[in-house]
Design a protein around this nucleic acid. Structure first.
Lengths: 194, 194
DNA sequence: AAAACCCATTGATCTGGATCAACGCCATTT
DNA sequence: AAATGGCGTTGATCCAGATCAATGGGTTTT
């Protein structure tokens, strides 16, 4: 299990993490399995874990004033998921996180992560690089959300995260893009018939 | 000039940076003045500077396929501005950055920043905290862009960045929110008449 | 001080995507 | 094998916000 995380860290940092350093990482992360539809975080409670997905698919969403789900994040194996704000500041989260497929996870608490950042320079470096990647990806998502038409949003998702289309149902993708399932369906038809 | 940056770092890190460490920071940043409408970055060229604004107001924007400006970022004194993607990866930027008011800036190159992160642990810590803040702020902007109505977007901006309203013209705020100036004007009227 | 802009405002019209409604197809239950 | 419920599709209608157009005030330019 842990070797998947190990390979991931090596890849992100373009380095090979030494065994004696990886020991700290193993110690900081706990294995956790969740079944489909099981929750990792409930709205109103503090997000206690930063999670690395070994296998499976998860989603993060909030419930708006009209009671409908707004998906804010989708994640597959090799991705991180968690509410950064709640996790770092120990404040109640506005989000729910649950499993879309059965998942194998590696989870770590804030204390464990903070300790780890002091113990492993490689992990600190990885965290920093991830923040950069995150900032860039998120920048594009902002522009898509504000400026793009429905068709452009669909195309942006196909380009940015093609894997999502095989793993998440249409209605979740629609919610993630801020579209209704009906519009999503029509866009899909329009694009594939060309 | 530099003491403004110093106070900023102290505040963000909740610490007092020692003199001997701050010397490195002074060395890494250069003072730069730009007049209103002057450019700091042109679309197509690499973003060479990460910029801390001592005084003044700046904007970042791109030009869409129809030739209209899409403002992606607005920034005032005490804020950072720059295209992270282009800056870190030395790739051509899709954005323009120019001054909305006369500005006094502290700028630093990628090499200088990287060196500085090794020299000053406080600066590294600050960069890390800023990334956290950025991630949280940006999360809200994504949700606003995707889910909010025009009125809600206006309210979100009033809450998140009230200072913008005294410093940037309405049409820039409209572009930043993904609205037309006309809609912005109507929303404004509607909200203030209540 | 005129001219030329820039910017905000208001009105009229148009349209992309939401909403409402109905149907059919699979999967999962029972 | 029947029943149930989730999911995608299609059609009809509606509406928030865009677009088009005109006006006037303020500020910068000459």
């Amino acid at each position: 299990m842990y070797d998947i995380l190990r390979k991931y860290i090596d890849r992100v940092t373009s380095a090979t993490i030494p065994d004696e350093e990886f020991v700290y990482i193993e110690r900081a992360f706990n294995l956790k399995k969740v079944k489909k539809k099981q929750f990792l975080l409930h709205e109103g409670s503090v997000c206690l874990y930063m999670t690395f997905i070994i296998s499976g698919a998860m989603r993060q969403y909030s419930i708006d004033n009209n009671g409908i789900e707004r998906i804010t994040a989708l994640a597959l194996e090799g991705w991180w998921i968690g509410d950064r704000d709640s996790f770092n500041n120990l404040t109640p989260s506005r989000y729910n996180i649950d499993a879309v497929e059965d998942c194998t996870l590696l989870v770590s608490t804030l204390d464990q992560i903070n300790l780890l950042k002091e113990q492993s320079l490689t992990f600190l470096k990885m965290a920093h690089i991830l923040d950069q990647h995150h900032a860039i990806a998120v920048q594009k998502r902002i522009e898509a959300g504000i400026n793009y038409t429905a068709v452009e949003k669909y195309q942006y998702l196909m380009e940015a995260n093609p894997a999502f289309f095989n793993r998440f149902p249409q209605n979740m993708l629609a919610s993630y893009l801020g579209l209704t399932p009906e519009t999503m369906s029509r866009v899909r038809k329009q694009i594939h018939s060309r």
